[in-house]
Structures are given as structure tokens and as C-alpha cells.
Nucleic acid binder design. Structure first.
Lengths: 114, 114
DNA sequence: TAATGTAGTATCCTTTTATATACTGCAAAT
DNA sequence: ATTTGCAGTATATAAAAGGATACTACATTA
């Protein structure tokens, strides 16, 4: 990968963990709902495929952001929730949401101004 | 694009503006150096190609994050610098850098622990 | 008996992002 | 006279991310 910039590098690490199309939405849902089952998340997140959800959840688990608890019953029951470590992302996610909302507003206005 | 999630959507907007391999590095260099010429940035950012730098700078200009000033001399002289609006990203970039640095540390430790 | 819900895999395809390489035209320095 | 620096563009390709569709096995419900 060859990232030898001291600053950009660390930001890139953060982007790898929370970036992409689906991870922020997953994390916000887990912030709001405490614990969620797989299909509950799938219903909440409009347009996500099972494959994408599985992949993103696995990455978040591997990074220690969320935990995956399996209840050994049939039919299968799996619950996802934020770890304490994952919760340290909360202020960051909030800031990103707020900045994005403002920027979207600004961008809309500048289009209208044309 | 069909992003209809109120939260994830805004975060995604932010990711579009500052995400990717090069934009954070570019922004940190502009935070530290106030104003930079094209080739100065190219020298500072290890491994970037001219094309990538051109593209990322153009996107940042289009989003209103940085400004591009052309001095009409020969050979060409162009300076890039953060706009006031771009500077509103500073706390966010700092938070992302700090979280990423800590996470990289944590991840390294957990690999050692194996 | 057929459909629905559970939590996923497997395979293939498209879109986006990133990289490599060559080229421009002009001026100053070597 | 050739090289270097300036700020890019053009074209082609490689790699990564994201998506569509079909499939698994078991149990409950209609």
C-alpha cells in the first residue's frame, strides 16, 4: 500500500474503517437501536444486498467496532451491537453527518444560483 | 444514486468531499503550508501522479474547499490554498487523523498478541 | 403443501477509483 | 544546444469496490 505520509495515512486508516457506501448507515442504525439482528438491519437499510451487509458487518467486526453474538437456536439468531471501542466513533460520525448536511445544503444553493 | 437514508446520506456527502486516497494528504499539506504550487504539492505527496493530483485538486475546487489562483506569467504559476469554507473541515480532519493513529496502534498490538 | 423467515455463500458482472506512460509549449539555466 | 521546471492533458490499463442473482438448510406459519 505504501502510505508513508504521517497525516494522510492516519486519516486513511479511519476512512478504511468507517468509509464506503454502507458502513456509516450501519453504524448510525446501531447507535440508534443498541442491538440489531441481521435481517432487521437489512430492512432498515434501503437498497443494501445481503452480500454487502454480510461483508461490511464482517469488516466492522474484524476492526473491533461491532460485536457479533450468535444464539445457537434454529432458525439462526445473530445480534450485532457496537463495542465500547466502536462507540468512540460517535463524535466523529456526528461531525461528519453535520458537515455533510450543511455542505449538501450549500451545494444545492450554488446550483440554484446558476 | 438513491441515498434515502437521512444519516448515512450526509456522512456519505462528507466522504465524497474528503475521502479517497489523496484528498486528506492534500488538505493537510495545505493546512500546514497555507498556499502551495502544483509541483510543490507533487513533491510533498509521495507517490502521487500528476493526473491524480490534477483530478483531486479540481474536485476540491469544485466543492469550494480550496481555491485555485492563476498568475498569468510564463512559465505558468498556479497557487492552491484553502478557502474559509475548506477550513471548517479542520477539526474533522484532526479528529480523523487522531482516531486513525490510535486505531492503527491498537490493530498493530492485536496482531502482535496472536 | 407451499410460502415465509432465519443468516448467510457462491458466482458473475458492472462501476468506480487509481496507475502508467507519453505528450504539450514556453523560458531559464547549464 | 540540451536539459530542467512549470502546469497540466490524453489515452490506455489495472485494481478495487459495489451489485445482481441464485442457492443453502431448517422451522414455523398459512
Amino acid at each position: 500500500m505504501n502510505y508513508d505520509e504521517p497525516f494522510g495515512c492516519s486519516v486513511t486508516v479511519t476512512l478504511k474503517v468507517i468509509g464506503g457506501r454502507w458502513k456509516p448507515i450501519i453504524l448510525f442504525n446501531l447507535l440508534e437501536n443498541d442491538r440489531c439482528r441481521f435481517n432487521a438491519l437489512k430492512r432498515m437499510i434501503n437498497g443494501i444486498t445481503q452480500r454487502m451487509l454480510t461483508m461490511q458487518l464482517k469488516e466492522l467486526v474484524d476492526d473491533g467496532i461491532i460485536r457479533r453474538e450468535v444464539f445457537d437456536v434454529v432458525p439462526p439468531h445473530v445480534e450485532y451491537s457496537l463495542t465500547d471501542y466502536g462507540k468512540t466513533l460517535t463524535p466523529l460520525l456526528m461531525l461528519m453527518r453535520d458537515w455533510g448536511a450543511e455542505h449538501a445544503e450549500k451545494a444545492k444553493l450554488s446550483v440554484k444560483a446558476k
